[in-house]
């Protein structure tokens, strides 16, 4: 991990309230991979905490993130133009990784959790793995990356909470409906905590033991593992894990949701 000043190449809205930003890295930064995140300083002196945002796409020289306008920090980010610079700490956390035997992979993503799911697709593009993507948005206006998911997945099902695009369903519901067809060797998921809880409960109810990894969100201080601000509870242990350093990706049984 490194703190670097990045130069914005592009920053534009791609759906209602969602921006896509691509920035150039000033130097080679090793270890960027799917499911990891970057920690961005909005740099105005008033907002002292960095904003953690998942890597969506990356190559040697640049990183793309997609972010939802939520509060002042993301609003300030949306005002940046190509050519502007940002201070960024990256790459952070432990991301998703697939083993050789994970041939059929289910991706279950909701809300801003769809972007780390796309980072998995991009990273394993052309490796012969078969992806089954279940992607949920609030409504049609929020839908983005639909074609990209379709292009890289064996099957991509985009659903919305209100049925204005695809089925009226959530990502977890869509996944379980298609489970017999997908027959995944591994499940990867990212989304709001209630969604991850529903996934965990659904797997338990059906007695399904397929390995499942989830990416968590927690408010952060340092973002690098030093301050113990971002913790979650480890299941069955009197011990905490740091979302920023030990996660954000955990085996679903390892942590309390």
């Amino acid at each position: 991990m490194k703190e670097v000043t990045v130069r914005i190449l592009e920053n534009k809205p791609i759906a209602a309230g969602i921006y896509k930003m691509t920035f150039a890295l000033p130097e080679k930064v090793g270890g960027i991979s799917c499911g990891k995140f970057v920690n961005i300083s909005v740099g105005d002196g008033a907002h002292l905490l960095r904003r953690p945002i998942a890597v969506c796409e990356h190559c040697e020289s640049s990183v793309t993130i997609c972010y939802q306008l939520k509060g002042e920090g993301t609003r300030l980010m949306s005002g940046k133009k190509a050519g502007d610079t940002l201070s960024c700490v990256l790459p952070l956390g432990n991301g998703f990784s697939l083993r050789g035997e994970d041939k059929r992979v289910a991706l279950v993503g909701g809300g801003v959790g769809v972007f780390p799911m796309y980072s998995v697709l991009k990273e394993y593009e052309g490796t012969g793995k078969e992806f089954f993507s279940y992607i949920g948005f609030r409504n049609k206006a929020a839908v983005c990356y639909a074609e990209e998911f379709a292009a890289l997945s064996e099957k991509a099902e985009i659903v919305t909470d209100d049925g204005s695009f695809g089925k009226k369903e959530n990502a977890v519901g869509a996944f379980f409906e298609d489970l017999a067809n997908a027959k995944p060797d591994v499940i990867l998921s990212c989304g709001p905590t209630p969604m991850l809880r529903a996934l965990k409960a659904g797997l338990a109810e059906r007695g399904i033991n397929i390995p499942c990894y989830v990416s968590l969100e927690e408010r952060m201080g340092c973002g690098i593992g030093a301050c113990l601000v971002c913790v979650c509870k480890k299941s069955g242990k009197t011990e905490n894990a740091r979302v920023c350093k030990d996660g954000p990706v955990f085996e679903i049984g390892e942590v309390e949701l």
């Binding site: 905490l49 201080g221 601000v229 009197t238 011990e239």
Partner: peptide
């Protein structure tokens, strides 16, 4: 010690607030 429940941090203008609760 396990410390306090989360969220443990928030922001104000030019300041932050924390309640980690001595996790160590």
């Amino acid at each position: 010690r396990l410390g306090n429940p989360t969220p443990r941090i928030a922001e104000g203008h030019g300041v932050i607030l924390n309640a980690v609760g001595l996790q160590n």
